[in-house]
Amino acid sequence: MKKFAIEIKWGIRYTFCYLAWAIFEKVLGIFGENMSYYMLSSVLFYLFASIIYTVALKEKKTNYFQNNMDWKQGTATGLYMTIVIAVLMPLTQACLHQVIAPEFFENMIAVSKDKVTAENYFNLKSYIMQTVFFTLSVGMVISAIVSYFIQTKKQK
């Protein structure tokens, strides 16, 4: 378990940052009157998520790999962190949509052109599944990109 302590720690921190971002969105009215900015806000969060991954992978490189981490090790570290985040996402989504922004689904359906499709898409069960798979795919991509930039360069 100690081998994955950094990934678990940063996966939990990521989850709390995700919830803090959701509260920030709620305060800005993004789940209500400013719903049109929801996609922009989501993209901005994933830029912030890239910073979280960078800090986590740098910590792993420094404290676990003694400043000698290759791309494969960094990507694996990011993948393990992504798995932690994906496991926590159902609880995170339930908290977001039942406590922070219970109006989210209703408002998303209201602004959709196709109400039937929107009702199938914007519900808690569907959103949990979407978020888990999206987290896994985006987390893998972010991990690979960040690992490329922070890997230990070979000496010539």
Rank of each mutant, 00 (worst) to 15 (best):
V87S: 09
S36D: 09
K58I: 10
L44W: 01
A49C: 15
C17I: 13
Y37N: 09
F16M: 11
A76H: 08
M69E: 01
W21G: 15
G29T: 01
Y53E: 09
F65K: 06
Y18S: 14
K2V: 09
L19K: 01
I85K: 04
I51C: 15
M35H: 06
Y80C: 02
G29S: 00
T15L: 09
Y46L: 14
D70I: 01
I8T: 07
F31D: 06
K58A: 08
N63G: 04
I51F: 15
E25I: 07
T62I: 04
L79T: 02
K61N: 03
T92A: 14
A49M: 15
W71N: 05
F48W: 15
L40Y: 03
K58S: 08
I12F: 10
Y38F: 15
K58W: 10
I52D: 13
T54G: 13
K3Q: 09
K3M: 01
K9Q: 11
A86Q: 08
T77G: 10
K9P: 10
G11A: 07
V55S: 10
F24K: 11
K72L: 07
L91E: 10
L47K: 10
I30N: 00
S41W: 05
G74P: 08
G29E: 00
S50K: 05
T54D: 09
G74M: 08
T92Y: 12
A20E: 02
T82I: 04
K58P: 08
Q93F: 14
W71F: 08
L79H: 02
E33K: 01
L44P: 01
Q93R: 14
L28M: 01
V43K: 02
N63C: 05
M39A: 08
L79A: 02
A94T: 15
I30P: 00
N67Q: 05
M81A: 03
F4M: 07
M39F: 09
Y18K: 13
L96W: 14
S42I: 08
M39Y: 10
M69F: 01
E7Y: 04
K9W: 08
L96Y: 13
I12M: 11
F65G: 02
K2T: 12
G78F: 01
W21T: 15
I8S: 03
I30C: 00
F65V: 02
S50I: 06
F24Y: 15
F65P: 03
T75F: 06
Y80I: 03
W71I: 04
A76F: 04
Y14S: 14
Y18E: 14
F48G: 14
M81P: 05
E25V: 07
L19I: 06
V87H: 10
T82N: 05
Q66L: 06
F4A: 09
L96E: 11
T54Y: 14
I12K: 08
T92V: 12
Y80G: 01
E7L: 02
W71D: 02
S50R: 05
C95L: 15
I83P: 00
L28C: 00
R13Q: 07
T62R: 07
A5I: 12
P90Q: 12
I51L: 15
A5T: 12
